[in-house]
Amino acid sequence: MHMADALISPVVGGTMWLATAGLATYSAKKIKQGLDEKKVPLMGVLGAFIFSAQMINFTIPGTGSSGHLGGAMILAILLGPHAAFLTIASVLAIQALFFADGGLLALGCNIFNLGFFPCFIAYPFIYKQIVGERSNQKRLFLGATIASIIGLQLGAFGVVLETVSSGISDLPFSTFVLLMQPIHLAIGIVEGLVTTAIILFVWRERPEIIQKAAMSESLGNLTIKPVLVGLLAFTLITGGVLSWFASSNPDGLEWSLAKATGVEELQAPEDGIHGILAAIQKKVAFMPDYNFKEAEESVVNAPKGKVEESWPAVNSGTSTAGIVGAMMTLLLAGVIGKSLQLVVKRH
């Protein structure tokens, strides 16, 4: 459920980056305050553990299919929410950088969906509440399973919200929710059970690890709530405002460029290309609102009447020009690059 760069808009990506950066700074501060430097190597090694464990297939009985581990809940239980958040963030960063799972622009979204919800919502408000001070097997089982499921459900919902407000996928909100939540309910149950199995094993073999983790936690827990509430409010407000802005102005950069330069006409011209010179002058006119009158006449049904902003001029002439141009561009890039390489090598 890693989101990809291809499916998000800069506004959504940027907002989620801001929220994630805030959380990361806050978590880093918390860890520093705790002066728990012993956690640093543990975080590193556990991050690598989760990364590797995510690649193991768990057979789901009776179905023949298999599930994976997300890992944030285990990390939260072993490290506490702040260190767990940073650890899962680093796992996702390595995945985005080295393995193209998710993307750099979407990294903020991914860290938020897969880190914030399990570490700062499901862990303190569900796992901690169920497990309490004196843990036993049954409580651990219930706490870890339910918290994993809810954490993943929230994360999946985050994916839906971010994708829909980006407006690049045409999936409507309701369909997407119906698609994502049930799938992730199934995934969440498997994840919850695997998490529980691991935690219970560790609890039986080396109970002190779980107990120690739970104890070092209790200090930080008191102060987290107000920050969390403030942060949630902040995210909801900016999210709400920005997504409204995003839907009325799907193109954030264009909008901000127009604002920055103060040139309102940027959006005004409706025509396609009249000539090369005119084209250079008009610049953004290549993305006019839309001008496929001819095509529209031949279209009987325009679904929902929601024809989006910008497909430049529809006419086979321009389309062919586009394709020829695209080929040429790629060829040109290759040729210039190759010759550059020769020049560089000679030096």
């Binding site: 090369i276 002439g317 321009t318 062919t320 141009g325």
Partner: peptide, 14 residues
């Protein structure tokens, strides 16, 4: 981002 070079090049060529 501001100038559609591809379209421009294609038009030039055809």
């Amino acid at each position: 981002r501001l100038v559609n070079v591809t379209q421009w090049l294609g038009t030039l060529l055809i």
